[in-house]
Simulated scan of single mutants.
Amino acid sequence: MLLTGSETMLNAISLKQVSGSDPELRQALVEAHLPTDDIEDEGRIFYKAVAGDGSSVGYCGIERCGDCRLLRSVVVDPERRGRGFGRAIVEATLRESNGYSDTYLATTTAAPFFSIIGFSEVPRESVPPAVLATRQLSSICPSSATIMKLQRPPT
């Protein structure tokens, strides 16, 4: 799947599915201070974003939660940040994993970024039980994490 993405992005990206045991995925998450405790559990799909020149741009994951999905593990290579790759990765991942009713995420630092893409903060009480029951929300992320829901499709 190729995208043209943001006008500030220099290259299109494609997504390549990788396993939760992929050492490059794990290293990218560790370096970005994102959790890795449950990335090998069932129900998670991870994608490596690859630029037109074949180089790795970043990663993103989706976790199935009943008929909802949890966006997770969004990371952009530090040398590629600020050029629209984060948005392109999220939008491509959401398109690749269509067929879910609602999309949620939890973040401690990136709420402003996700707001630009169409997510907005929601109270924890409004989040479906299947999403709250994920290891990500039930034990890995701090209770102070902002929970967000996709309110409009990416543009």
Score class of each variant (00 low, 15 high):
104 Y>E: 05
55 S>L: 02
37 D>M: 12
59 Y>H: 03
63 E>K: 11
73 S>K: 00
90 V>A: 03
77 D>A: 11
45 I>K: 07
32 A>Q: 06
87 R>F: 07
87 R>N: 10
48 K>C: 05
48 K>D: 02
22 D>V: 09
97 S>D: 13
77 D>T: 00
46 F>A: 02
78 P>N: 01
56 S>L: 12
57 V>T: 03
45 I>V: 15
96 E>P: 05
82 G>K: 06
84 G>R: 01
63 E>F: 00
79 E>S: 13
91 E>T: 15
43 G>K: 08
71 L>V: 04
65 C>T: 03
94 L>M: 10
85 F>G: 04
95 R>F: 12
83 R>P: 06
90 V>M: 06
53 D>W: 05
65 C>N: 01
105 L>P: 07
26 R>C: 11
20 G>V: 03
62 I>F: 02
62 I>H: 00
46 F>I: 01
89 I>D: 01
18 V>W: 07
83 R>G: 14
38 D>V: 09
18 V>C: 05
84 G>N: 03
49 A>Q: 00
18 V>M: 05
36 T>D: 08
37 D>V: 15
103 T>K: 06
52 G>C: 04
49 A>Y: 00
41 D>C: 10
60 C>K: 01
67 D>I: 12
101 S>H: 12
57 V>M: 05
27 Q>W: 10
73 S>R: 00
97 S>C: 15
102 D>Y: 13
91 E>G: 15
29 L>K: 05
85 F>T: 04
90 V>Y: 00
37 D>G: 15
68 C>T: 09
90 V>C: 08
36 T>E: 09
46 F>P: 03
101 S>D: 13
65 C>H: 02
57 V>A: 11
79 E>P: 09
94 L>N: 06
31 E>L: 12
48 K>P: 03
61 G>T: 01
51 A>I: 03
31 E>W: 08
25 L>S: 08
106 A>E: 12
80 R>K: 15
102 D>P: 10
104 Y>D: 07
85 F>Y: 15
